[in-house]
């Protein structure tokens, strides 16, 4: 595992076949197999929080082709395991982000895309903007406003590596929680205004 850490197995049938053989012969643990499988099926949910969506759409367009990483934006949160926060999260949207996040099955991962999703970016002192990491736990941060599609691809690649390196998915299967984080509750109840 460790020897191949640095590589990315995109479209590499040989590596995939060897790996499948190893699993079948019992050389690899099931957790490793889960890590490996999860890292190549990161499906982001179709939740668009802001204008970084234009570059997110470009990432899954023909030029940058995000699907080559085994990643496909999907409609229903129930069938996805990755959320990409595409830019600013406003107070009104924070509630939707949290609800979507809670609907996704574990193990799930989050990428914060763009300056607004890190520290507010241009809107750092805006009265209507919340930091997404206060709402959901984030795995990878992408700087830029908006980041290039390559950056998004980079983030997916790095997240795949992180999953394999830290056995995030496998650990979850074994123990039921992510090794690197406690179950996160938002700092404030972002939906309080809505519930009334």
């Amino acid at each position: 595992m460790a020897a191949e850490e640095g590589k990315v197995y995109v479209g590499n049938v040989d590596v995939a076949a060897r790996r499948a053989r190893d699993i079948l012969l019992g050389k690899l643990k099931l957790e490793d197999a889960v890590d490996w499988a999860t890292s190549f099926s990161l499906w982001p949910v179709h939740l668009t929080t802001s204008c970084c969506s234009t570059e997110f759409a470009a990432t899954f367009g023909p030029r940058f082709d995000g699907e080559q990483f085994g990643s496909l934006p999907w409609v229903s949160p129930r069938q996805t395991n990755l959320i990409v926060i595409e830019g600013t999260v406003t107070r009104k949207m924070a509630c939707a982000v949290r609800i979507t996040w809670e609907q996704m099955p574990s193990p799930k991962f989050a990428i914060a895309m763009g300056a607004c999703a890190l520290d507010g970016g241009l809107f750092y002192n805006s009265y209507n903007v919340v930091r997404p990491w206060e709402v959901i736990p984030i795995d990878i941060y992408i700087p830029g406003c908006p980041p290039r599609p390559e950056s998004v691809a980079r983030a997916i690649v790095e997240l795949q590596r992180k999953i394999r390196r830290k056995h995030l998915a496998g650990e979850w299967v074994r123990t039921g929680w992510r090794p690197d984080r406690e179950p996160v509750k938002p700092k404030e109840d972002v939906c309080s205004w809505w519930r009334g």
Partner: peptide, 12 residues
């Protein structure tokens, strides 16, 4: 170049 990502906010 632009495709640099981080795992921690403090590195940025």
């Amino acid at each position: 170049y632009h495709d640099v990502v981080y795992e921690n906010l403090s590195e940025m």
